[in-house]
Computed example of a mutant assay.
Amino acid sequence: MAIQVGDEAPDFNFTHKDGSSVSLKALLQKKKAVVLYFYPKDDTPGCTAQACSFRDSYESFTEAGAEVIGVSSDASTSHDAFASKHRLPFTLIPDGDGSLRKRYGVPRSFLGLLPGRVTYVIDSKGVVQHVFNSQLQATRHITEALDVIKRLQS
């Protein structure tokens, strides 16, 4: 069942190779909102455009008290190379087994062949305030999310 506006966001926890970790619970304890975006694959045209758009707006998100986190099924090594190549300042979480995607109910698209592209805006209390699902409008995810984050801030 897909997570919808008003639902409590499922927790996630990822530990980096250097021992640092990121979890929804820890971010919420810091009173941060979270923009959690699921995307199909590192270094593909749409996913690169989306990640770079989040990068270009990252300061606006952080100034509004939000953290951006990207999720795909790519391995940590792929995420590291993708983040380095495009200077991405936010965390990318590997979801190789698809368990996080499944907990959020992110659908597959294009006849079930591609992992879906869905963005969730989670407020500082852990409640989903916005869901945007569009495989083809990759950069619109950023404007949708930023509009909601700014509304939450005011």
Rank of each mutant, 00 (worst) to 15 (best):
residue 40 P to E: 11
residue 43 D to E: 11
residue 44 T to L: 04
residue 44 T to Y: 06
residue 46 G to Q: 00
residue 47 C to Q: 13
residue 49 A to H: 07
residue 50 Q to M: 13
residue 50 Q to L: 11
residue 51 A to M: 07
residue 52 C to T: 14
residue 52 C to Y: 04
residue 52 C to G: 09
residue 53 S to A: 13
residue 53 S to D: 15
residue 53 S to K: 13
residue 54 F to T: 05
residue 54 F to A: 04
residue 54 F to H: 13
residue 54 F to G: 14
residue 55 R to V: 09
residue 56 D to N: 15
residue 56 D to L: 12
residue 56 D to T: 09
residue 56 D to I: 09
residue 56 D to V: 14
residue 57 S to W: 10
residue 58 Y to K: 12
residue 59 E to A: 15
residue 62 T to P: 06
residue 62 T to F: 13
residue 62 T to R: 14
residue 63 E to A: 14
residue 63 E to L: 13
residue 65 G to A: 10
residue 66 A to F: 01
residue 67 E to V: 06
residue 67 E to G: 05
residue 67 E to C: 11
residue 69 I to H: 09
residue 69 I to Y: 03
residue 71 V to A: 00
residue 71 V to I: 02
residue 73 S to I: 08
residue 73 S to N: 12
residue 74 D to W: 05
residue 75 A to C: 05
residue 77 T to G: 08
residue 77 T to V: 15
residue 77 T to L: 06
residue 77 T to W: 10
residue 78 S to V: 05
residue 78 S to L: 02
residue 78 S to G: 12
residue 79 H to V: 03
residue 80 D to K: 13
residue 81 A to N: 10
residue 81 A to R: 10
residue 82 F to A: 12
residue 83 A to T: 12
residue 83 A to V: 05
residue 84 S to C: 04
residue 84 S to N: 10
residue 85 K to F: 12
residue 86 H to Y: 14
residue 87 R to E: 13
residue 88 L to M: 12
residue 88 L to P: 14
residue 91 T to Q: 15
residue 92 L to G: 15
residue 92 L to E: 12
residue 93 I to D: 05
residue 93 I to A: 03
residue 94 P to C: 11
residue 94 P to F: 01
residue 96 G to E: 10
residue 96 G to Q: 01
residue 96 G to S: 15
residue 97 D to R: 13
residue 97 D to G: 11
residue 97 D to W: 14
residue 97 D to V: 12
residue 98 G to F: 02
residue 98 G to D: 03
residue 100 L to A: 04
residue 102 K to S: 10
residue 102 K to I: 02
residue 104 Y to W: 03
residue 104 Y to G: 04
residue 105 G to H: 01
residue 106 V to D: 01
residue 107 P to A: 02
residue 107 P to S: 13
residue 108 R to I: 00
residue 108 R to E: 05
residue 111 L to H: 00
residue 112 G to E: 00
residue 113 L to Y: 09
residue 113 L to H: 09
residue 114 L to V: 13
residue 115 P to K: 02
residue 115 P to Y: 00
residue 115 P to R: 01
residue 115 P to F: 07
residue 116 G to D: 06
residue 116 G to E: 07
residue 117 R to G: 03
residue 117 R to F: 01
residue 118 V to D: 00
residue 118 V to F: 08
residue 119 T to Q: 01
residue 120 Y to E: 03
residue 121 V to G: 01
residue 121 V to P: 04
residue 124 S to M: 03
residue 125 K to M: 11
residue 126 G to W: 02
residue 127 V to S: 13
